[in-house]
Nucleic acid binder design. Structure first.
Lengths: 360, 360
DNA sequence: TTGCGACATGTTTGCGGAAACACGCATGAC
DNA sequence: GTCATGCGTGTTTCCGCAAACATGTCGCAA
């Protein structure tokens, strides 16, 4: 169109739309490097990216020029040209939970070594709408894939993230259409309960996590199932919100009765609250009350008494999520790397001094 | 150029370089929206961005078309055109420290509401070289500004981040050429020591953080200075690494002597270790030993005994860093928003049950 | 010697959006 | 009545890079 115009109106002065100092970052562009090195832009591109077929001499010239000019590749331009961003998005519900942070850390570290950068988004509510909004935000921001950490219960049975990018879910329900990685929460809870029953406790009380948390649901369900299978009474669980305060409150309520000899708290923070309540009520741990936590935070060996708890390797979860996601991103087509094996990392019971046989 | 060619070689078949299904994300582009709405691309751009001058009717047409097509703006293209990314980078040393995470959380939340996304990078070593590499990585990844959280001691006296983007430092040395925000560490440490001296302790022992950490240095220096000013003996501090284990080890060493009545730990985690060591050694807290921590982690009120500590509002630090950074990013030119006032957030001593007057 | 292919390098084009500018029309001032 | 102005919209160009395609070069075998 405009080509033809040019032909007819040859005399027209070319318009200069270029801004004064602008131009993405103002830094040197590939063309500048190409000029200085006396090669074409394409050759510079080849040097910058994988070592296609470039002579050592040419490569050297280009590299010298790049260094001389302080050239940095403009990834916006590259993304525009390739359609890839080499960025992955992480959607989280909050950063207060130590666990999520550990996953995030593993993801960031791993992504860095794979040449990806990580964009973090935080979600307000637990509903699918919120998550979807966050994912939308991320994909607007341009990511090649998304990891959702600790999705809570969702409005709809299956999380229908509408985007075209691959999604991997960490630490959440397994029944998504997206791959999911996490701990084997049930195994961890069973180990805790089994340990207490093995010590001779008649039953085990539970301080559960919030009902909208998938891990909390799983831990609670496993606890209940094991008690039932063992023919024990299933006392009503007390629901907390992961915080030490809620654990404390729960324990004050639980320990009002005299029959409680063993408590399994759904995380370490709440277990700390339980220990505190026991101390205030004069119930000695572990002699009169056994307590088990979950997570193995770094300070738990130094509590009084050192806490028996379930250790989780969250970094492994993060790593697997990342691997899976990158595999899907880089898969040529609907390869859908199986990832069938080892979707779940096995937690491990760490027995310390907060558990013992019941007194009588 | 090619225009002219077209004129002469009219018969030449146009080359189709376009990939089959590629094209950034494959989604609809502005041109598609423009077509459907029967307007020009520029008008769509105007609708998408600030409400320039567009008729309500036109705007409606465009918006309808956008919705119909599920149009999403391609930020890579926008970034290429504008030179802005609406992304800020955060450089951290590790995510294990709860404090840093709180800052990060505040930054992410704030950035989201301001329409920025956050890219996280982790640094291995504490040297300037490492930081610079991380920042380089981030700016390669395209950010408009960088926040460095808890920079450690650097190789060179002044952090010379070479990049052209604005940088803000959180929780670190103040004497950079970049704006710095953080806690008033010294005030916090003074409050802790002052509290203990006020209770009647002859002097205060210190379990310090790692020597390459700026906050650790500050806390230690303030502790030492206040003791000196008060004419007290300055016992040699024991250096830990922030971990509960190191606090425990330090306390075992400190409490070997019989004269220690008050310990100020540079963070809560180490304080937990101190409490544990005291318990094992049969030194009752607070009757025989007073302990003060730093940070006010959420579980500290539930320790035995509840820990007296210094509370920091890290979220405020994160928010201020972000504000300052965005101000600098969006400043028309070297406006260098003063931000003189309130560079430091004041910490607050929270007195609980781990401190008391010395026994005799 | 020629032919041919492998490989190094250059050229063109387009990704999707935004800025500068042009243009047409309605309005108001003089 | 003429002209400056403002406003909504369209047109052209460019951002920096990479893919597809074109071209040049060299070596080696027939």
């Amino acid at each position: 169109m405009y080509a033809v115009r040019r032909c007819y109106e040859e005399g027209r002065a070319p318009r200069v739309a270029r801004l004064p100092g602008t131009g993405s970052s103002g830094g040197p562009s590939m063309a500048d490097v190409a000029n200085l090195a006396g090669v074409s832009g394409q050759t510079v591109s080849r040097v910058v990216n994988g070592n296609d077929r470039v002579t050592a001499a040419t490569r050297l010239k280009v590299e010298t020029a790049m260094r001389q000019l302080g050239y940095r590749t403009n990834i916006a331009a590259r993304a525009l040209a390739t359609g890839r961003f080499r960025t992955i998005g992480v959607v989280m519900f909050n950063l207060s939970a130590v666990l999520n942070v550990r996953i995030l850390e593993a993801v960031v570290t791993g992504a860095q070594t794979r040449g990806y950068s990580v964009s973090v988004a935080m979600v307000d509510g637990p509903t699918e709408k919120d998550i979807r909004a966050a994912v939308r935000g991320l994909t607007d921001r341009a990511v090649d894939g998304v990891i959702v950490i600790e999705a809570r219960v969702l409005d709809t049975p299956h999380l229908q993230l509408p985007e075209e990018v691959p999604v991997v879910i960490a630490d959440s329900r397994a029944a998504h259409r997206h791959p999911t990685f996490g701990m084997d929460e049930a195994a961890g809870a069973r180990a805790a309960v089994d340990h207490l029953l093995g010590l001779g406790h008649a039953t085990v009380h539970h301080v559960a996590g919030p009902t909208d948390s998938i891990p909390a649901q799983r831990r609670r369900a496993a606890w209940q199932r094991l008690l039932k299978r063992s023919g024990r009474a299933v006392p009503p669980p007390v629901v907390g919100d992961w915080s030490p305060q809620s654990g404390y409150d729960a324990a004050r309520r639980l320990l009002a009765g005299d029959d409680v000899t063993a408590v399994f708290a759904a995380n370490d923070q709440m277990a700390v609250g339980v220990l505190r309540a026991a101390a205030e009520l004069g119930r000695r741990v572990p002699e009169e009350l056994s307590v088990v936590g979950f997570d193995d935070l770094d300070f738990t060996p130094f509590l009084s008494p050192p806490l028996t708890t379930v250790r989780q390797d969250l970094a492994a979860v993060g790593r697997r999520c990342l691997e899976q996601l990158i595999a899907r991103i880089e898969a040529p087509q609907g390869a859908e790397a199986s990832a069938s094996a080892s979707r779940f990392v096995l937690p491990e019971l760490v027995v310390r001094a907060s558990t013992a046989p019941p007194r009588r």
